[in-house]
Amino acid sequence: MAPALSPSKTRTRVLRRALSTGALALGICAALAAPAVANPIAPDPAHSPNAEDIRVAYWVTLIVAAALAVVFLGALFVALRRFRERRGASPRRVTGGTGITLRVAGALGLVAVALFVVGVLTTESARKLEPSGPDGLTAATARHAQVGVKDVPQPEPGSDEPAEGAPLVINAVGQQWMWRFEYPGEREDIAEVFSYNELVVPVDTAVLLNVRTVDVLHRWFVPALGGQVDAVPGTTTQTWFKADEVGRYPGASTMYSGTGFPAMRIWVRVVEPEEYEQYIEQRANDLTEAQGAVEEQNREAEE
């Protein structure tokens, strides 16, 4: 401790040193501890590239936020322990000027800028639709991309062939209190193939979801396959995912939509492309059969 310094400067220096050492130590601890105790503090494992981007943003912000909180709380408790009231002691009336305020504000500003950069990079990466892989289905057509997804492969102008790696376009329509999924593909027997609450998609295939609603606001959320997207009346919002593994991924609507809202759960069943085609075929036959049965009933009722 340099004798030339006034007590206030020494104190400030101690404060600064305590703060910086604490920050460093805690940052390292947090970084080391994060993967080790990953299970409860980690979101569900990602199974789609955009979900991976979200995980990156999550871990970076978690470490930064936790480090800031721990540094501050550590300094607070050190201060509370060290400077308990002593009889007869009258504290020096130290106040800070513009210099230290600007330095603290500058440091915090840098953290904010860094988080912004991470946010923009991960957002841009998550928005960018990745073309279907070699193991995926390639027979679907991409129509157009709206707000929410970019770099959707477009077919050649004037060509009927789908673009290379084009996504499978599926409508996810929310209603009180279920999800209806409308699959692409033109058929002679029925208008469209659809299913409720369980969405079946091929693996390694880019799936472009048109999220819509027929009544109130809903929100699409399957944690393993990307972030939340609102379903807004009168608008189509888009999101996408490309599942990397066969499996069944749970999700739910996260926007309150009335008293039956907890029932708005979602399951995305990811299957091999052949199985997907079989499923669509089976589903179409089932629907045609059901439609036939209804027509039959109607005829009987008329007679």
């Binding site: 979101p43 999550y58 930064v64 988080l115």
Partner: peptide, 19 residues
């Protein structure tokens, strides 16, 4: 507030908002 700092970053909010 540390938690709210996290959800100020858009992709994190996509994951955590309304959970």
């Amino acid at each position: 507030l540390a938690g709210e700092l996290m959800t100020a970053v858009m992709p994190v909010a996509w994951q955590l908002e309304n959970t």
